[in-house]
Computed example of a mutant assay.
Amino acid sequence: MTFQMTLTATVMGLWATTAAAQTTVVTSPCQPETSSVTAADMAQYLAGTWSMSAAGTGFTTGTNFGSVTLAADPETGQLTMSADGMSVPLVPMGLARELDEPAPDEPDFDMALEGLSGGGLTQSEIEVLTGCDRPMRYWWSMGSGNRRSWGGIMFVEPDMASGFMANSAGGSRSVIYRR
């Protein structure tokens, strides 16, 4: 009887330790409104090397090809995007935050889903095509004045994202990212 009680107590102790140490597992960049996924969880999920094709729009011509690295800071959970020796923090839109954590600043440019889809798709069209009714979006901005660039990224599938980038000189590109 004592052996059985000891075994049961040991198993219960292990179970409690394992349950307390569990972290959120992210399986998709598409998260429901009630998701417990945090910005740090999503940053870890999206981290890695992504190929990029950026087709010029408006006055910008040609298509640029390259790769970008998304990296998650293990201490802060901040997601950054790096390419060609430059790095910029990505600001999440719509992820759960701790109650005492301030909301990130809103971008001063349009982050509507239609602009991020590349083809001007509406939210309902994106949902029909991908099954995602709430795509994860990030925005970035760097520089100031007449030397400023900005953009947005929308992750709709585990290995695909779309978005745009623009600059103060009037250049703009529609961007597709693939992992």
Rank of each mutant, 00 (worst) to 15 (best):
M1I: 11
F3E: 07
M5F: 15
L7V: 04
A9I: 10
A9K: 10
A9E: 06
T10S: 09
G13Y: 02
L14F: 02
L14E: 03
A16M: 04
A16Y: 14
T17N: 06
T18P: 05
T23N: 14
T23C: 14
V25C: 10
V26M: 12
S28G: 06
P29R: 01
Q31F: 10
Q31K: 09
Q31T: 03
T34H: 13
S36R: 11
T38S: 08
A43K: 00
Q44V: 07
Q44W: 15
T49C: 05
T49N: 04
M52S: 12
M52N: 06
S53D: 14
A54W: 00
A55V: 07
A55H: 13
F59H: 14
N64Y: 13
G66R: 13
S67E: 12
S67I: 08
D73T: 09
E75G: 05
S82C: 06
M86K: 14
M86I: 10
S87D: 11
L90V: 00
L90F: 01
M93G: 04
G94L: 03
L99Q: 11
D100A: 08
P102T: 02
A103M: 02
P104F: 04
D105W: 01
E106R: 04
L113A: 04
G115H: 05
G115K: 15
L116I: 11
L116G: 02
G119L: 03
G120P: 13
T122W: 02
S124H: 13
I126T: 11
L129P: 09
G131I: 11
G131V: 06
D133N: 09
R134P: 15
R137I: 06
W140M: 00
W140F: 12
M142Q: 05
S144M: 10
G145L: 06
R147T: 10
R148Y: 02
R148D: 05
W150F: 01
G151R: 01
I153G: 00
I153W: 00
I153H: 00
M154V: 03
M154F: 01
E157Q: 09
E157F: 15
E157P: 09
D159W: 07
M160T: 02
S168W: 11
S168R: 14
S168A: 10
A169D: 13
G171D: 07
G171A: 12
S172P: 01
S172W: 03
S172G: 08
I176S: 07
I176M: 08
Y177L: 15
R179G: 06
R179K: 14
R179I: 07
